[in-house]
Simulated assay, not measured.
Amino acid sequence: MPAQESPPLPAHLQDLTDRARTYVEAASSQNTRRAYAADWKQFCAWCRRSNMEPLPPDPHIVGLYITALASGTATRAKRSSTVATIERRLSAISWNYAQRGLHLDRQDRAIATVLAGIRNTHAAPPRQKEAILPEELVTMLETLNRGTLRGLRDRAMLLLGFAGALRRSEITGLDLGRDQTDDGRGWVESLEKGLLVTLRGKTGWREVEIGRG
């Protein structure tokens, strides 16, 4: 007997469902979802090669996977992953399980203890980048052609980033106005006394004021 199809939702509930889907997508950026999907695909491929199943969540399997990442045996390239990459892939695996209504216990000894050992063994101290000075910025700006749109754009990006102490991802995610694009991470407003940059970060929204001069 063929399975009966579920009756369609009332119009007002369908609208709420569509809105909920939009909010779910807004919880993470498109680039993050793309990276998480690629990480999940690699995890599943490793499970197949190792004769293990990625579902349901098993901390012991995930612990073995991050061990393989650290030792360079997770892929055919035989290349060890950095601690940052391992932590991102662990987040991707947890996120993908959550999208399926499943929970991965990252505090389980099979994961937490192994990850702590990987950090102690492979973690490298952060490299402090040397800040550029104003005169160095001016030299960089002079290499750009003011007579082209590309040159003007690049000058604006450099000056805005320097004056607002912005990260590269924050600069490239900016729109020229609110709601200009669906995946923008912020926008710029031109005011009488300068610029107001609104940014969306991991901890929420923040504003950066940049005066003229």
Rank of each mutant, 00 (worst) to 15 (best):
D39C: 03
A92W: 01
L174H: 07
R150M: 08
L13H: 02
Q107S: 13
E135T: 11
G101W: 09
A98M: 07
P54G: 07
W46N: 03
N96P: 00
L149S: 11
L137R: 07
I66L: 10
A124H: 12
K78H: 14
R153C: 10
M140V: 12
L137D: 04
L149F: 10
L191Q: 13
D18C: 02
E25K: 13
W95H: 14
E142H: 11
R168P: 00
S169P: 03
L199R: 06
S169H: 07
D179P: 01
C47S: 05
Q4P: 00
D39E: 09
D182P: 00
E192W: 04
P56A: 09
R127C: 06
I118N: 04
M52N: 05
S80C: 13
V208K: 09
R212F: 05
A92K: 01
G177D: 07
E192L: 11
T32S: 14
E207D: 14
A37E: 15
P59N: 06
Q128C: 02
P125G: 01
M1T: 10
R212A: 11
T82G: 12
Q99P: 01
Y23M: 13
W187M: 01
H103N: 06
R167Q: 13
C44L: 02
L55T: 08
W205F: 11
G201H: 08
R168H: 09
N120L: 13
E170L: 08
P56L: 12
L13M: 13
L69R: 11
A11H: 00
L144A: 08
R106P: 00
K202M: 08
A3T: 02
A124Y: 03
S71G: 07
P8I: 02
A11T: 02
S91Q: 08
G164S: 06
L137A: 11
L64P: 00
P54V: 05
A84Q: 10
H60P: 00
I61V: 15
G211C: 02
E25V: 02
S80N: 08
H60G: 05
Y65G: 05
R88M: 05
L133H: 11
D108H: 15
L69C: 15
N145K: 10
L69A: 05
T17P: 00
R153V: 07
R119S: 01
D183V: 07
Y97M: 04
S81D: 05
S190K: 11
P126S: 09
S50H: 13
K193A: 12
R155K: 12
G211N: 03
K202A: 11
A110Y: 02
R21N: 09
T17W: 04
R185T: 13
H60M: 11
E189C: 02
I210N: 03
N31R: 14
V197H: 01
R178H: 12
S94Q: 14
N96F: 00
R88H: 12
A37S: 14
V62I: 11
Q42A: 12
R168F: 08
A74F: 04
A123Q: 15
L64K: 10
L115A: 10
W46H: 03
E209A: 14
P54L: 07
L133D: 06
L9Y: 04
Q128N: 06
I86V: 08
L13R: 06
D105H: 02
H12Y: 05
I210L: 13
L159Q: 15
R119E: 09
R19A: 14
R88Q: 10
R76H: 07
S190T: 08
L13D: 09
R33E: 14
V24E: 15
G164K: 01
R76T: 14
D58F: 01
